[in-house]
Simulated scan of single mutants.
Amino acid sequence: MNTIIGGGVRCVVLGSLRTEVLATGRDIESDFAHDIEVRDGLITRYRMFEDTWAVAKAFEPTMVD
């Protein structure tokens, strides 16, 4: 489930995702946060925060713990 928190021109979107890395067959499960600002109908700020360690591990040829 995703959560959107905002007011005015800025919002934060919280959620999680799961996807498979085809090259390794491993799944990535990661929480994320998007920091978004919209002015005059255009996105003027977009930042994504996620668990990059989980993403990197899913791309490793062998498991790293």
Rank of each mutant, 00 (worst) to 15 (best):
V13M: 05
T24Y: 05
F49R: 07
S30Y: 00
S30W: 02
E60D: 13
V55W: 08
S16D: 05
D65T: 12
R26K: 08
V12S: 06
S30K: 00
M1I: 11
A56V: 11
C11E: 07
I36C: 04
F32Y: 14
L42H: 13
A54I: 05
Y46C: 10
P61D: 12
E29K: 06
A33V: 14
E20C: 11
R10Q: 07
Y46M: 13
D35Y: 12
C11F: 01
F59P: 06
G41P: 02
A33Q: 02
M63E: 14
I5T: 06
R39C: 08
V64D: 11
S30P: 03
A58C: 09
I4R: 05
G25W: 04
A54W: 01
E29P: 02
I4W: 03
L14D: 01
E20Q: 14
R47E: 07
V38N: 05
T24G: 08
E20A: 13
L17N: 03
E20K: 15
G8R: 03
L42P: 05
M63L: 15
A33N: 04
D40R: 13
G6W: 04
V55L: 12
A33C: 15
M63S: 13
D31A: 04
T52A: 13
E60S: 15
I43D: 14
G15Q: 09
V38F: 04
A56I: 14
R10G: 02
G8M: 04
V55R: 10
M63V: 12
D27C: 01
L17F: 08
E50N: 08
S16H: 01
S30T: 11
R39V: 04
C11W: 02
F32R: 01
G25A: 06
F32V: 07
G7N: 09
T3P: 02
E50A: 10
R26V: 00
L42T: 09
M63C: 10
E50K: 02
A33W: 05
R47S: 15
F59Q: 09
D51E: 10
I36M: 08
G41S: 09
V55Q: 12
R47D: 12
S30G: 08
V38G: 06
G8A: 05
M48Y: 07
D35V: 14
R26Q: 07
T3L: 10
T19Q: 08
M63R: 15
G25T: 06
L42I: 10
G6R: 07
T19C: 01
R18L: 00
I4H: 01
A58P: 09
Y46A: 08
L17G: 09
E20R: 14
R45W: 11
R10L: 02
M1H: 12
G7V: 03
